Simulated assay, not measured.
Amino acid sequence: MMSSERPTLPELARQALSSVQRGYDLLAPKFDHTRYRTPDSVLDATTRALKTLGPFTDGLDLCCGTGAGTRVLREVCAGRTAGLDFSAGMLTQARYRYATAPGPGPHWVRGDALAPPFRPGTFDLVVSFGAFGHFLPAERPRLFARVRETLRDGGTFAFPMAAPPRPGTAAYWTLLGFDAAMRVRNAVWRPRFVMYYRTWPLAEVHRDLLLAGFDVALRPLPELGRRADDSPRCRLLLATRR
């Protein structure tokens, strides 16, 4: 990778001092060369798991960004695919990514995940990758309710969930420090930039999905490795609309 493809420190600082939407508009041309992009290993593992659960017809990539995760839908859905994001810059990159791809391209939609501009029952699969840190815990019930509305009866909402780092490890202190710094930044600077790594615990997510009208199951993704206690490092959460 050429170093010029990565965002520079001043560019990252400018993004961090912007709103979430403006920040991603600025970062979009170089986003796929950052570590914030969902790794291909996670996308491939998700694809393999969903292929055993289909067939699916129409699919939505929620908070699709540059469309990296949308290829999962193109591999498991036989009908229409769509990507929803609120950043015009990220959607521009997504359109460019798929401009020369064979077959019908995804339908890219600019909009808010908390108020998706789709008719009820439009999709039978909704996926999302790496976006949930941008939603505060109080917004989670509304987000899940909107996803449920976009799904047909029996439709699936699927997303990977990594196991949290163990207390005392370097990863644990890194994420704790990042969230603390972000809270300080948002207390003293406007506009806010909402991005937290520790606001999506499995127990609370499971509870809110049940309350929103989903049945919930977890499927290990063993190809992504196991921890020292032999538990999977990552699971695919499958929420089925009741």
Rank of each mutant, 00 (worst) to 15 (best):
S18Q: 00
A212F: 06
L17M: 11
Y98G: 05
L53W: 10
Q15A: 01
R198L: 09
T52G: 07
T66Y: 08
V127C: 11
L237K: 05
F214A: 09
A45I: 04
K51R: 15
C63M: 02
L236A: 09
G69I: 01
C234G: 06
L125K: 11
G225N: 08
D153R: 15
R37V: 01
F144S: 06
P222G: 06
L73C: 09
F118Q: 03
R140G: 11
R190Y: 00
L224N: 13
V188S: 01
G54K: 11
R233K: 15
F132K: 04
G54R: 12
S128K: 07
G65A: 02
H206M: 01
V188F: 10
L143E: 06
A16E: 07
Y172N: 05
R227P: 03
P10N: 09
P29W: 03
S128L: 09
H107W: 13
L209H: 08
V72M: 08
L9F: 10
M2F: 15
A181H: 04
K30H: 05
T47V: 07
A49H: 08
A16P: 00
A101R: 13
R95V: 10
V205M: 11
V188T: 10
A88M: 10
Y36D: 14
G69T: 02
L114G: 12
G65Y: 03
V147Y: 07
G79S: 06
A239V: 01
D44A: 15
A180M: 06
S19I: 00
V76F: 09
V76E: 08
P120A: 13
D124M: 03
D112W: 05
A99T: 11
A28E: 00
W108T: 04
F31A: 06
A78V: 06
W189Q: 05
D32T: 05
K51S: 12
R148Y: 03
A212H: 07
T57Y: 06
G177F: 04
L9M: 10
Y96D: 15
L62Q: 12
P137K: 12
